[in-house]
Design a protein around this nucleic acid. Structure first.
Lengths: 129, 129
DNA sequence: TTAATCCTTCCAGTTAATGGAAGGTCAAGC
DNA sequence: GCTTGACCTTCCATTAACTGGAAGGATTAA
């Protein structure tokens, strides 16, 4: 299977697949003409990557998860630890974003949003040390 | 005021301040020795930037907000529109992160996290087209 | 005078791709 | 056999918003 089909199969852009090979996440074979050939194994890895990235795991997390997947002597606790750290990161981001959201929507409630220049949003941004 | 003091005042790293000058967000004066000199105006802009960035506005948003701040003939609706778009972006991110979080914590609940290799998290990542 | 800070510019690296140029390969149709 | 178009290759540059570090000039205190 060439890269085009692999892209169709996994939903990953060709560029992304080439990039994943570049950084050593996948290693497709090569045909005599230099084209990448994706066998069942490589395709499987791409699917794995697509899912893991879709869940927000970093590339390095993905690398580690793939290694654990290949390691039949793994401990599930290692996998769970990665997931746990990732959830903590997500929670952190969510709470930061929520705080921003609250502040902003509060300010917006007090901004007339008309053609006059007075604006509580700008006032807030411009004042205070 | 030199860049060190400006950094202390605003909480922004010196590097970041130089970067903001580089991209044209602030334009401090220069002393005879080449050192940057931050007057009241520049310092004020840095505070503004620190707050706006703290609320997650992009650099381009910040550029536009600063321009609106300087424009006394502005319409508050222009400011509000930027804020509104930003809140929409934040909401989008929050919902994506929440979805990831839910999926992950569901998977984690079913992962023993012991020294056995069986792992529902890996199973999920590795299967399904 | 010298050592410790502080300042300068410039170059490279970060994350995870994405865009585009220049060019080789292949399959179909005439 | 040739051309056309789709598909593939590599390589270089760019994105966002900084951050790190090197090399070297300026200032200040002892």
């Amino acid at each position: 299977m060439n890269i085009g089909q692999a892209a169709d199969h996994t939903g990953l852009p060709e560029k992304t697949i080439r990039y994943y090979e570049d950084i050593g996440l996948v290693t497709p074979n090569r045909a005599a003409n230099g084209y990448r050939v994706f066998g069942e194994n490589a395709l499987h890895q791409l699917h794995f990557l697509a899912k893991a990235r879709g869940l927000g795991f970093s590339i390095e997390d993905c690398r580690n998860l793939l290694a654990l997947y290949d390691d039949t002597a793994r401990s599930s606790s290692d996998v769970k630890a990665i997931a746990k750290a990732h959830v903590a990161t997500i929670d952190q981001k969510i709470s930061e974003l929520s705080a921003m959201r609250d502040t902003l929507s509060h300010l917006m409630k007090h901004c007339a949003g008309d053609n006059r220049p007075d604006c509580p949003i700008l006032n807030e941004l411009s004042q205070g040390k």
